[in-house]
Design a protein around this nucleic acid. Structure first.
Lengths: 235, 235
DNA sequence: ATTTCGATCTCGTTT
DNA sequence: AAACGAGGTCGAAAT
């Protein structure tokens, strides 16, 4: 529907929400949010999308992220207020609410979506783990993985195993170049295991990723941790 | 435009891309991505958005995140191939490419966007910092902030100051409930400063956030770090 | 329902 | 251009 009155638009949106359709609008609007934080957005031309699962997205002309949004699980409501179309989405836990007030509607449309196929994605940390379990020598000659997701008081270790000499080895895997955060994570696991397995056991911590930043390299050295360069995919 | 042929749709999209308009489509499509990772998506009805800044979003009927996307800075291109409308967005650094192949187009529209107002958001970590600098006693009676963003070899400390007895205090601020990662961050700063200011100086590390998880609390105790409960906003 | 961590994270800021 | 950290992060898996 092109250039509808706000009343016409409201009727179409109400009907579409009842049918659990996906609704899109384009028009001049203000946006208010209140919940985990709070925000106000002055008038501008924006794209609005309402999904049947409760998602509410407001996009400007730039950026990958919506300028404002409401997560899945919200309830959409639409009404006329002060000659404007107000679309409000509310949820609880956490309590939050998004209200879009359209003074002019350039465009409204509704679609009946079919359920999606699931996506097949390659090149993740899980792929890196599979690669290592299949060819442990990529990490180091003689490395033997014993378990994955081994629990420690500091969280689950990606890969847990032994080196050629029988020393315990902890691997932390990252699919791409890593900074200081990953070193901290690896260090937590190593310290937790040293405490768990008693102090005399030497435990090697190895960060496995395509590359590391300078600061991360310095932190690794400081903590006596190691680095092995590997990508999720064979080249 | 409702139920156009792919040729009509292609003409509209090409024209809109030349005008740097925002384009939306709805229809049956497959999606291919290759770059930082790689993915394939089988046929389904989806919503496609092309922004003039190079952003390309493909939304299914669920979730806040697009099922597939291409970041800002990409170049859009549209053509007919095998009786289907192919919209491809490509960028370099990193090299990546998203291709949407629409076999049926239910809907196409183009909008000429006006520049957006900027958003006014409150309840951020910056708000928490302002609150503390204005009323340092909220952290602890007698606390005196000396600088913010003080540089250490491990990165910049959120707030750096002294307690009533003149001991150095490092604050790490978080706007919401925190897990183990924030404790690791605080610990890095404290250790870096202990090294910097020589070993005999006692340095207190204080995590300031609304609350902490159990694991984070245990890690704090282990490291001799402290916690103060504060939210970004006064209640 | 909460915790934890990966992500094609995105986004802004600083170096 | 790269690095670093925040985010109304989102989302999924495990507890």
């Amino acid at each position: 529907m092109q250039d509808p009155t706000v009343t016409e638009a409201a009727a179409l949106v109400s009907d579409a929400l009842d049918r659990a359709a996906l609704v899109t609008l384009f028009g001049r609007c203000t946006v208010e949010y209140e919940g985990r934080a709070a925000s106000e957005l002055a008038p501008g031309d924006r794209h609005v999308m309402l999904k049947p699962d409760g998602t509410h997205l407001v996009h400007g002309d730039e950026g990958q992220k919506p300028v404002n949004w409401q997560p899945p699980g919200s309830e959409h409501d639409c009404r006329i207020e002060d000659a404007a179309l107000v679309i409000e989405s509310v949820r609880t836990n956490p309590e939050e609410r998004l209200a879009v007030t359209l003074s002019t509607v350039v465009h409204v449309a509704a679609f009946d979506p079919t359920d999606d196929e699931s996506i097949d994605l390659v090149g993740t940390e899980a792929d890196l783990k599979r690669r290592i379990l299949k060819s442990p020598d990529l990490v180091e000659a003689g490395f033997r993985p014993l378990s994955t997701e081994r629990e420690t008081p500091a969280g689950a270790v990606d890969v847990y195993g032994e080196d050629r000499e029988g020393r315990t080895v902890v691997l932390e895997l990252k699919r791409r170049r890593v900074g200081p955060d990953a070193v901290g994570q690896l260090n937590r696991y190593v310290e937790a295991l040293e405490r768990d397995l008693h102090a005399d056991a030497e435990i090697r911590g190895v960060l496995v990723a395509p590359s590391v930043t300078e600061r991360a390299k310095a932190l690794l050295a400081e903590r006596g941790l190691e680095f092995v360069s590997l990508t999720p995919q064979a080249d």
